[in-house]
Structures are given as C-alpha cells and as structure tokens.
Design a binder for these strands. Sequence first.
DNA 1: GCCGTTTTCGGCCCGACTGTTTTCAGTCG
Length: 579
Amino acid sequence: MLTSNDVAAILNEVAVMLEITGATVFRSRAFRNAAHAVEELTTSIHDLVTTGELRKIRGIGKSIFSDIENLLAHGSFALYDELRTAVPESVLDMLRVSGMGPKKVKLVYDTLGIHSVEDLERAGRDGLLAALPGFGEKTQGNILRAIERMKKYQGRFLLSTAENQAQPIVQGVASVPGVSRHLITGSLRRRRETIGDVDILVCASDAEPVMERFTSFDTVASVNAKGPTKSSVILTSGLQVDLRVVKEEEFAFASHYFTGSKEHNTEIRARAKKMGLRLNEYGLFDSKEHSDPCGDEAALFARLGLDYIAPELRENTGEIEAAKNHTLPALIEEGDIHGVFHCHTNRSDGHNTLAEMVGAADALGHAFFGTGDHSQTAVYAGGLNVDAVRAQRREVDALNRAGGRVAVFHGVESDILADGSLDYPDDVLGELDYVVASVHSQFTMGEAQMTRRIVRAMSNPHTVILGHPTGRILLKRDGYAVNLRTIIDAAVEYEVALEINAHPYRLDLDWRHVRAARDVGAMIVINPDAHNTDEVAYVRYGVGVARKGWLEKKDVLNTRTPSQVRQYLRERRVRRGIA
DNA sequence: GCCGTTTTCGGCCCGACTGTTTTCAGTCG
C-alpha cells in the first residue's frame, strides 16, 4: 500500500520528468507543489482520497487529485506511465549531478543517447560532452568533478554537522576588517533537520577581502564560484558553503531572501507584487523603483502587512496567512526549557555517571534531570534488570536528599516488546517516576501491526512518554511503518507525551507531524537522548523542531518547573488509575 | 496544472554566476 511519502515521491518524479520532456515550468511546478502538500499529511492519504478531502488542500487541483486517485487504486496513472516510457529512470539520476539541469540532461540524452550517470562520466572522459552546443571544455570538466564529488559524499548533512563546520568559517569572515554584520541564513537558520548547503550573509563596505578570506580557508577543497557579491566553495567534507556580501541598507531584505524557504519567498514576493511592489534581495521597490528602507526583517514583514514570522516557520505551510491574521504562535524558546527526561548513564550504554549527567544539566541552567536508561531486553545496550533499576532508584534518592540545585527524576526507557507490552512487571514500573516507551526491535513489522503494538504500549498507564515515535535515523534509515494519526490520537486519549527526540541523528517526531499533534492537543516533550554529558545540550536541536512545529511553551512538558512536573506526574497517575 | 482582494482566463518570483557566447541560456538557490 502506498504511503503519503510514496505518493509525494512519485509526484516529484513526474515534476522532474515534465521538466526533461520540455513541459512548461508552471506545469512542473504544480506537481512539485502538490508533492509538497502531500508530504505534510498526517491523516492516511487513502482516507483523504475516499472522502474527497484531499481535493480541498491547496495545490491539489482536479487533475492531480484524479491522478492520485488512480495511483492509489491502480498503482499508476496515465501521465506517469507516459513519462516513464519517454524518460528512463536512470536519466533522472543525471539531475543529481551538480550543473546538470533538465535542459542539459535532455540534450545529452537526445544527441548522444546518454541515459545514466555512468554513461555521462564515460562520455566526459572521452571528450564527447565538450563538443555539444552550450557545453565546452570547462563544463565537461565541471561535470566530471561533480560526478566525483557525488560518488564520494552523500550530498546532505545533519544540521549539527553543517553548523559545526560552518561556525569557524563564519567567525573567520566576520573578523575581516570592514565587516559590520553577519548571519547564517538558509535552511540552517530555519533549523531544518538536514542541510544541503550553508548560506552565510555578510555586510561589508568592501566585498573583495571578504571573498579572499572566504575562499582561502584550509577546509576549502574547491572554489565553485567567486564574484563581487557571491562566492561558493566546497569544503573537504563535501559540504557546500555559499557567501553573499551586501550593503548595510540591503541587509534586512537579503537576510529574508537568503533564509528562504524558496516556497516561502515565492509567496511573499507574490504578496508584494499584489501590493504593487517588487521584492528582491536588495529592497522592496515601488513603481518608481524607490526602495522602502527596512532596518530589519520585522519592518519588512510589517511593510507587507504581516506580523514577524520566525525563520523556523518560513516553509510556506500557512505562516503567511497566520501572520496576516495575527494568529502566529508565541514560539517556545530555549530558555523555556527547565530540564529534560530520557538521558542515559553508564548503568546502561551512557558514558557518564548519573552525578556527572546531573552536573551537565546544572551547567545548562536546568532545574531538573530525568534518567532513561535502557531496559532489560536491550542486552546490546546493557539494559537494566530489576535489581539495577532499584539500585538506580537509591542513587537518585540519595542525590535528591543531598539537595543539589537540580531535582532528579527516575525513569527508564523501556523497550516496547513485539506484542506491545513493556519490559518490566507493573509493580516495578510503578516504582518509577515515569516510563519512556520506545521501539528498538523488529522494525520491519507491517504498519497495522506496528501501530497496534505502539498503541498498546501507550495504553499502559505507566507509559508517560513515547520515545522517538518513528525510529528514523536521519540520512541512514527511514522510520518504521506506523500510522501517526492513530498514534497522535492515542497520545491524547492515554495522556502520553510524544517525544521530540532532540538527538541530531533523530529529530523524531518530525516537525511536519509535531504540528498535527499540537492541533489535537497532544502533549510534547523534548528529550536529548543524551549518552554523555555533552549531549544534554542537544535539547536545543529539539527546540528547533518544536518551533518548526509551531509549538508554544505550554505545549511542551519540560517547560515546567520540577514541582510542576511532580504535580503533573502525580495527577496523571490519579487520572490513569494507578495512584 | 493551479488558482482567484486582477476570480474561470491569464497569470504564475527574481537575480548571480558561469561558460558559452558576441547578447544569453542554463543552473542554482
């Protein structure tokens, strides 16, 4: 059975094939927009098609609705079949080669019969590409180098990786004399979970020394472009970093422009256009080409009749409408977090003692800290048997009696067994302050069975938190098949907080689904899943996800003080009948 | 192909850089 993500992937594929076959950019864009809309769904796409609700979603018109209907019923639709006949699948791979767009792909396919990256590489080595119209020696060399790079690297990076690699470069260009302002923009500023490239924006009276510094870092492997306002480099890690230099009076426009997303920008510019204005990275121009002076992004939004939209929300998922209607959320901030749950100690697979982990929480200014070591079935991770759980309880009690600044809560991360039961008897679970229930095995279970398994675990009154709800590992493995709609509803029914696992490898629950959970009033909790003292600070990546999911302080369990957490757990126990 | 404060047709965001060109197409973001 096709999932929403499968459908979105096919719609994207159609968009790409339309580009290659020379359809208008608008038709192609329509499929891309539809794919974007489908990716956001949390309700089963099958249900939405059956009820016709899908047709009401912006971006899904009569024609694409019918295509999706056919796709779900028969596994394909006429246009898709037609395009797949016209464009072999391996041709699409060529688009992943930097510098190869639809026009060039079509040209090499039509004239040289090249229909894969391997063919393209061979043709390049044989010098055949350079002879094509619009190509040349340099283009041929660039394509060969791009293929090399593609083979060597994944192409996308974790948010944390990109940020760590960008920091020294940002600091370096910021220290060039004449640089007055600097900002990381792009998807990094929007706190996307993975990053394609890093965008840095700088204000400088003279761009040249900035470009010189930027292109000469030790970590720069190659310089892709170097102009008076824009340069682009590839680091030895394979990460691409772009730098733009603008004037002081352009900064607000440029920071908005380069922060994106592309979809958000398109909507914003369309709005400006309707107001008789033209917006680009240099200004907001009226019919006489006079730019509105906007000192910051807030002024720019205000000029367009909008409330300030935080970077994390700029994904064109309704934020512009909400900004117009003054209904944007007051987003949660890092400083709202008073503590975390679900951290590991060296009793299971963590590297530090409980006391050391609590010290790390203290250093972050947290008021509480909650453990979440693995349970006994997780033998590979040194999971705690019942005696070890009780020994840890004594350790927690002793720390609390010692009266440090940080209150310590005692929880475990209990494996959800194949049948949905938890990993300890009820009386042992009852001795804990809370239980984080997580799936760590049998990922390949079918959706219906996996959903039943997880819902059963959530229905256990001792389960307070559902850990990493989909089990995905970014850039490595997709989450297991699970009906998130059902899980979200169960979270409300059984009063289970859904975890935003803030570990940069996970960031699970995904921000796209966080919002759906919020909309029905599910409680969210942000946990670092820390395995050493440094990783407690990962909670900030989770705050980024929460903000992208439109969460406010009140939506998140760990914005509460220790006494409020105690009260919540106590009252919850009463409501769940285990007091 | 989608959509509507320009509403059922006629629009649909905008600019930098490169490499190929002698004025611009393609790609990228």
